[in-house]
Write a protein that binds this DNA or RNA. Structure first.
Lengths: 191, 191
DNA sequence: GTCTATACTGTGATAGAC
DNA sequence: GTCTATCACAGTATAGAC
């Protein structure tokens, strides 16, 4: 749209790429705008041309993730509310998680910073929408909590778990997380 | 020890109490020392008499939690490594979690800030030690990940879950979390 | 021992020159 | 589209009042 035929990488995207790297590494609040600007050979004030605030940079990460989750939920809304639909929802969400690992890690590590953002609640809101497709409001507490665990299992292993061994591949970790997640949802159907 | 017979609440403890409230509510980085001082009728500099830095205030929260977890792990080290020991470990950890809810919430929401702290890794280190008691290193990946989920289930529901209903009591939530956690460990024994 | 006054550097942010 | 200048406020630190 604003791209010329030469297509150099736009400054806006360069900022996003550098920012998520530094935010993930050092935390959102510990990463200064000066630091980001220096990595890019810009000045602090130059960032303010491309983004209204520092928070806006962080919020811009969510858009693609939120869109992907919305696609899943829209699909889920049109399906029968049975076990197979729920298993397929978990499969699809696992794929989304896999394609947004840096963003997931950033969101998991900076929850306090994100609750301050208007668009920061995107993460929680999308999880809540998925949860409502996985379990009915009138099911027992144990089932509702188990549905929540089924969702968090899919990303918390990738982000917070430190028991990974050298022989564990990414593929194996995703499959293991999905298997555990599935078994939690299966248990809900038996209860 | 340093307490007189009058036993007024020591300033140090008043600072801790106010700090964890504000940290939990607004996040660690968004809570300024001036804000804490104002809540207590002190000046910012007065805090520096009782704590060396802001990080020291946060780190001081962990001590009691870490001690409680160490007691559990020390007990676990002296038991046979069987299923009943592991179930009992989960029961005891659930009690620790329950008695440190504000601290657990603070740690969960401020992971990025905490990894900067020397004593901040206390949280992760203690979880890792518990995990090693719940599962053997040479068990399949799925079992190791399931042991991790068994632990996180015990506190993540209290902290990040938003599906709680008015009729759900604290007691019921703890029991539900413990039941799910137990079933994950039980599954490891069957695998 | 407990705290106040004050100052230092770095932060996110804004206004306006080029 | 990028920069300079400037702002209020942050965490930190020390000197000294009581």
């Amino acid at each position: 749209m604003t791209q010329t035929s030469q297509n150099p990488v736009p400054t806006r995207e360069r900022i996003q790429k550098t920012a998520i790297e530094l935010f993930s590494e050092n935390g959102y609040e510990r990463t200064s705008l000066r630091e980001i600007a220096e990595h890019l050979g810009l000045t602090k004030a130059a960032l303010y041309y491309h983004f209204k605030t520092k928070e806006d940079i962080a919020a811009s990460f969510f858009d693609s993730y939120a869109k992907d989750v919305d696609v899943i939920c829209d699909w889920g809304d049109r399906q029968p509310r049975d076990l197979e639909t729920r298993r397929e929802l978990l499969r699809r969400y696992a794929e989304v998680v896999q394609s947004h690992v840096p963003v997931m890690r950033f969101m998991q590590h900076n929850q306090a910073a994100l609750t301050r953002l208007d668009r920061g609640s995107v993460f929680q809101n999308r999880l809540d929408r998925l949860r409502d497709l996985l379990v009915d409001q009138d099911e027992p507490l144990t089932n509702r909590l188990r549905a929540w665990d089924a969702l968090t299992t899919l990303y918390s292993g990738l982000v917070t778990w430190r028991g990974r061994q050298k022989t564990d591949t990414d593929q194996q970790m995703r499959e293991a997380a999905l298997e555990i997640s599935m078994s939690l949802i299966d248990a809900n159907s038996r209860a």
